[in-house]
Computed example of a mutant assay.
Amino acid sequence: MTGLPYAVASGGWRYAIAYFALALPAAVFAPPLAAVALALGVGSLWFHRDPERTPPESGIIAPADGHISVIREEGDRLRVGTFMNVTDVHINRAPTAGTVKTVDHRPGAYKPAFSKDSDRNEQVVIDCGEYHVIQIAGWFARRIHPYVEPGDELVRGQRIGHISFGSRVDVLLPSAYSREDLLVEKGEAVTAGETRIVEDAI
């Protein structure tokens, strides 16, 4: 039991404990610094909150909380990206069922995740064959934490990782889908594990 009204993502306590440890001696020698460290510790836990979600029974769903920031064709595939602000939940979820083929870390830059240049940022690509999930770091969020590995069998809405303090998560849809199949549009708010991006192909 954490005593919190929500679970905390793996790794979230690591950030919080460092701030709490700083707050203890600072409370004696520099109370204002202690207050700042305590606030940062509590903020770290809130940033890494992990609420339960109830996935729909069908469709490919959003892998991240936030707003749709990217919709574009890549060959015969459609990429849909979600920008996660610092106030959004940072847990990423499987868009649909699948088997993890590879988990590929790609070093890169740290441009703002809402910019076009963010396509060259550090990434983790989770290849599930028919679809890919791409976790993209931003200028501030430089810690991508995938929870899955090759061979894992995923179910719709399963936790697959998190990005500390925000950034962007894209899904490269199966080739059966096009823009006409989208249930979301650019700028729309979505909820990881619950908002459908497209309905199942017939």
Rank of each mutant, 00 (worst) to 15 (best):
N121Q: 03
S118R: 03
H132I: 08
I134S: 04
D127Y: 05
I126K: 02
E130A: 14
I134A: 01
E130P: 02
R106N: 08
I126R: 00
K116I: 07
K111V: 13
G129V: 12
I126S: 01
G129Q: 12
S118N: 07
A109W: 04
S115A: 15
R106I: 15
G108A: 12
P107C: 12
E130H: 09
K111I: 05
N121D: 10
G108E: 12
I134F: 04
H105P: 12
K111C: 12
F114C: 03
Y131H: 09
A113S: 01
P107M: 13
N121L: 02
I134L: 09
H132W: 14
H132A: 13
H105E: 14
K116M: 04
I136K: 07
I126H: 03
S118E: 02
R120D: 11
N121Y: 01
Y110H: 15
D117K: 13
I126Q: 00
P107N: 10
H105G: 05
G108T: 12
Y110F: 14
H132F: 11
A113P: 04
R106T: 15
D119T: 14
G108L: 07
E122Y: 00
R120N: 06
G129S: 09
Y131I: 07
Y110L: 06
I136H: 05
A113Y: 00
H132Y: 08
V124L: 05
H132D: 12
H132N: 04
S118L: 04
D127Q: 04
Y131N: 06
Q123A: 08
R120S: 01
G108I: 10
H132L: 10
D127M: 13
R106G: 08
V124H: 10
Y110S: 09
I136Q: 07
Y131L: 05
V124N: 14
G108M: 09
V133F: 00
A113G: 01
H105D: 14
A113K: 00
D117W: 01
K116S: 13
S115K: 11
G129E: 11
Q123I: 05
V125C: 08
G108S: 08
E130G: 15
I126A: 03
H132T: 11
V125W: 04
Q135L: 13
Q123T: 15
I134N: 02
K116C: 02
V125G: 02
C128H: 10
S115D: 13
R120K: 10
I136T: 15
R106L: 14
G108K: 06
P112S: 06
H132P: 02
S118T: 04
A109N: 09
S118W: 01
N121F: 12
D119C: 07
E130T: 14
N121A: 05
C128Y: 01
H132V: 08
D117E: 15
V125R: 06
K111F: 15
A109Q: 10
C128I: 05
Y110W: 07
V125Q: 02
C128V: 08
S118F: 03
D119E: 15
S115G: 10
A109K: 09
G129Y: 09
G129K: 04
V124S: 15
Q135C: 12
E130N: 14
C128F: 04
F114D: 11
D117T: 10
K111E: 15
K116D: 14
N121M: 03
C128N: 02
N121S: 13
A113N: 06
K116Y: 11
Q135G: 09
G108C: 09
C128Q: 00
Q135E: 14
S118C: 07
P112T: 03
H105I: 09
P112M: 03
I136Y: 06
Y131T: 09
I136C: 07
I136M: 11
P107D: 13
A113W: 01
